[in-house]
Design a protein around this nucleic acid. Structure first.
Lengths: 218, 218
DNA sequence: CTCGTCCCGGCAACTTGTTGCCACCGGCGG
DNA sequence: CCGCCGGTGGCAACAAGTTGCCGGGACGAG
């Protein structure tokens, strides 16, 4: 279940990570974190105190980068409210695909890996050089990402039409038809689709379809 | 949970349907059935004896129509073997989208409806006219569908490349690039994509993406 | 009222995807 | 050897999707 080599530990399953790092979270003064899916927002709720919505250390500075597609998730509203309720938690949005990453005090890195047999593999890294490398990458992503409030305002309107657009796309309806259906010009409909694809971080409609389904939006 | 009006009963959840109709399956001499997803192949395994792979009534004539996309499912091979092991079970494949439908002895119809709160709604119909109507529709679908063995032979080759093609599509790779990656001509690559889309019953790549994800192929 | 701003949607240029057509190649039975 | 496949891939015509550009209408501030 566990494989260790020097300063890198590979573990399987969130619970295992939780057990091994809980003490680090409790004392950490700075937690930075990147995530693709809502479910990993500070691990799952069930994990309890580890949730970043209830940072173990009240004084900790928490920074989080989310993938933009999450703003399309129906449950996002509630999450957003929770996040806003906490000061000291700084959230940004990126359109890039990001690996699940947690950095504690710039000293310990937890990297999410592949899913295997239903469980995700995590690497816990303490090796100085590796940690610095990851840190640097994270900072780059952080700088490129946009402030939550800004982003949220930008896409607020998209969210109104998104469900309908997604529905039409999922039905395999042609743009021409779909636009008429929604009472929009074809140009505008395509604008919506483009925004949607951007939000999903998709390069092609196929990919957008996959991601939309992944998020349960269709 | 349950709503009844004359000869139509609406129930929620497979278990409920199972409880109400188990006795019908046991005595039925003719079971016809259409399904979209493998999971509904004679209900879920857990439901036990109701599985059509173990028809309650050994002498029953069983006819099943599956959506073609199921042949792309990795677990299909095993299923296929099981099906082949049973005589009296006649399977056909359609490229059409089919609602989940079960007809017992041409007298009782079970129709799968929408998902609501995670559970699917089923309508159990005994009203003569309605049953005949459904029966007639099913027969039309049945005639239009192709024999399993025939279809399986046709797509046998597709299945070799399908995973790779799906993977490339899911990555948002352009046809040009993807074709080179696979050592194919662009024309041939697109032929594969077209076959894939046909197998998935998709009219657009977006839809194909959704379905592929639905089936867990990506 | 006028100006600025924002969004819509038509137009157009371009890219990407879809499909039929056909020449080409390798195998296989006559 | 020959002709008959079945699959391949280039070509081309067309359909669909993508994007910049711009005129025009709505709406609020000045």
């Amino acid at each position: 279940m566990t494989r260790t080599s020097e300063a890198v530990t590979v573990v399987r399953g969130e619970e295992e990570v939780f057990r091994r790092t809980a003490h680090l979270f409790e004392t950490a003064g700075e937690i930075t974190c990147a995530a693709n899916a809502l479910a990993t927002f500070g691990w799952r709720e069930a994990a309890g105190t580890l949730s970043a919505t209830h940072p173990p250390n009240p004084g900790a500075r928490v920074r989080k980068v989310y993938r933009s597609s999450m703003l399309l998730d129906p449950s996002w509203d509630r999450r957003l409210a929770v996040i806003r309720g906490h000061s000291g938690v700084d959230v940004r949005i990126t359109t890039q695909e990001v690996n699940e990453t947690i950095i504690l005090d710039g000293r310990v890195v937890i990297l999410g890996g592949d899913l295997r047999a239903g469980e995700r593999t995590y690497s816990i890294i303490t090796e100085r050089g590796a940690v610095q490398g990851v840190n640097s990458l994270f900072e780059a992503t952080w700088r490129a990402a946009t402030e939550l409030d800004v982003y949220d305002a930008e896409v607020a309107e998209i969210r109104v039409l998104a469900p309908q657009v997604l529905d039409l796309l999922a039905q395999g309806v042609k743009d021409e038809t779909a636009a008429r259906e929604l009472g929009l010009g074809v140009r505008t409909y395509r604008r919506r689709v483009a925004e949607l694809m951007a939000a999903l971080g998709a390069d092609s409609r196929f990919q957008a379809g996959v991601r939309a389904r992944e998020l349960g939006l269709v």
